[in-house]
């Protein structure tokens, strides 16, 4: 049995609780960014681009055995790290669970300031995209 979205969120929260200061936290996010499963170059197309980000972010969604599978890329490494966390929590989940998920881990790990709708890194845009891809699957 694979882990639920909330189990994965709790895991992330636990990991971040180990960090004493912002530098350790961002070092970790940067490392995650470096390990992000990258979207193929050929798939960096306009329709996969998330608008409203200061750095360009592309997301690709696929369905494998009724579960969503996401890959992404961004020009900015911190943005990549943040989307990597989102993908870790939401990838391999059913579209239904993704749509109804509440992503409380973002606030818990102190990234809530990235959540403002006008914040230039477009975290809200990323979440909306992942959820809307899941919603598209549900509508099929």
């Amino acid at each position: 049995m694979s882990k639920s979205i909330n189990e994965l969120q709790d895991e992330v929260i636990e990991e971040f609780a180990l960090f004493d200061d912002w530098m350790e936290k961002y070092e970790y996010i940067i490392d995650l960014g470096k390990d992000l499963p990258l979207i193929e170059e050929a798939k960096k197309t306009e329709d996969r681009l998330i608008h409203g980000c200061q750095s360009r972010v592309w997301v690709e969604a696929e369905v494998l055995d009724d579960r969503m599978c996401f890959t992404a890329d961004s020009e900015a490494i911190i943005t990549k790290g943040i989307i990597s966390l989102l993908i870790r929590v939401l990838s391999n989940q059913t579209p239904e669970n993704i749509v109804k998920s509440e992503l409380y881990f973002i606030g818990e790990i102190g990234l809530q300031e990235h959540l403002s709708p006008t914040r230039a890194n477009g975290l809200v845009g990323m979440i909306n995209r992942l959820k809307s891809e899941a919603l598209k699957q549900l509508a099929k």
């Binding site: 940067i30 200061q54 750095s55 020009e75 490494i77 911190i78 943005t79 890194n121």
Partner: peptide, 11 residues
């Protein structure tokens, strides 16, 4: 990327 530098400077 400027965004990365800006984010870490903000911290």
């Amino acid at each position: 990327h400027p965004f990365d530098l800006g984010t870490l400077l903000d911290q």
